[in-house]
Design a binder for these strands. Structure first.
Length: 309
DNA sequence: CCGACGTCCTGCTAGC
DNA sequence: TGCTAGCAGGACGTCG
């Protein structure tokens, strides 16, 4: 499942292959992604040049602009064209999304839902078996940024200690739910949440408001460390994930807890356990990541007075 | 307002 | 061997 490191890898792989190219045609599959592709979106991006491709959280932003027409003498600037001069294509890979560049002669794999023809024998294909992914087009940078800003918190690398501390202490939710909340920190999913919690010695069921400031900062540092480490390994391939060049990730070999139920904790050799938290399977080491007594017994709500004095 | 939970979707696999 | 129930989970809608 593509999380921040996987999406970053896709974007880095794709960058040299798509930047500078023009979208010469858009082909849309029969089945919808999370939201149906709108016909006017094709009009908005057709003929536009890809200036850049970047990542924000788990989202991919393709920046497009009008190519300057050098030879046309009868150039009539149209208002509508000006509004859509710099549209943005925003993609989310969901669970099983793959974004790769192919030659048009390569056979289409099943579940290919969008094809962006790039001319000169290349096309960008969006394939997604489970269709949890999405594609949206916005008329300009401001609209695209607004869309992302209203659902995403800071990138892990830009997460400030103070504000993260405030966010964690302000909630009774289990840490696992906090880390999966994209408005708290953008880009963390089930794998890296579990890995970061193990690295910081915190139980996934610990409730935010029971943490010490020191623990919160340890968690923040663990998130950054595990994300950066994973990017260096091109992310994790569990089953479907591939980078923009079709290469798999290697970080699955570095997992300390995720998907390792029953195996030995790499730190203390205790068997890794799995529990369902926030509707997700959560892997942890019972010894390295103990639940504090007060948290486990009854949700940790009645403890609020003791932190006062 | 906040938190918990159900829904979408397909392919794989554990279990009979 | 063949069948099926259950599981995987990111984002978002709904409910209490």
């Amino acid at each position: 499942m593509p999380e921040l490191p996987e999406v970053e890898t896709v974007v880095r792989d794709l960058r040299p292959l798509v930047v500078g190219r023009r979208i010469t045609a858009v082909r849309v599959g029969a089945k919808n992604l999370r939201r149906p592709w709108q016909a006017e979106w094709s009009e908005l991006i057709l003929g536009k040049r890809i200036d850049a491709i970047r990542r924000r959280g788990k989202w991919i932003v393709v920046e497009l602009s009008v190519i300057r027409e050098t030879k046309s003498s009868d150039e009539r600037p149209r208002a509508r064209l000006r509004l859509a001069a710099n549209p943005r294509l925003i993609l989310h890979l969901g669970m099983t999304g793959q974004l790769t560049v192919h030659q048009p002669t390569e056979p289409l794999k099943d579940h290919t839902h969008l094809i962006f023809e790039l001319g000169r024998g290349h096309e960008l294909r969006f394939r997604d078996v489970r269709r949890f992914g999405s594609a949206d087009v916005f008329v300009n940078e401001a609209e695209a940024n607004a869309y992302l800003a209203e659902r995403l918190g800071p990138e892990p690398m830009e997460l400030e200690a103070k504000s993260f501390q405030a966010a964690v202490l302000a909630t009774i939710r289990p840490l696992k739910a906090v880390l999966l909340d994209q408005s708290v920190v953008a880009g963390v999913g089930n794998i890296y949440a579990d890995e970061a919690l193990h690295r910081s010695g915190l139980h996934p069921e610990r409730r935010g408001n029971t943490l010490q400031p020191k623990e919160i900062d340890r968690l923040r540092e663990a998130i950054v460390a595990v994300i950066e480490h994973a990017i260096e390994h091109r992310g994790s391939t569990i089953r479907d994930y591939i980078g923009g060049s079709g290469l798999k990730g290697e970080f699955q070999n570095e997992f300390r807890v995720y998907g390792r139920t029953g195996e030995a904790c790499p730190v203390c050799e205790t068997a890794i356990e799995v529990v369902r938290v926030a509707g997700r399977s959560s892997h942890y080491c019972g010894k390295c990541q103990p639940v504090s007594r007060e948290t486990k017994s009854s949700g940790g709500v009645h403890r609020s007075t003791s932190s006062r004095d």
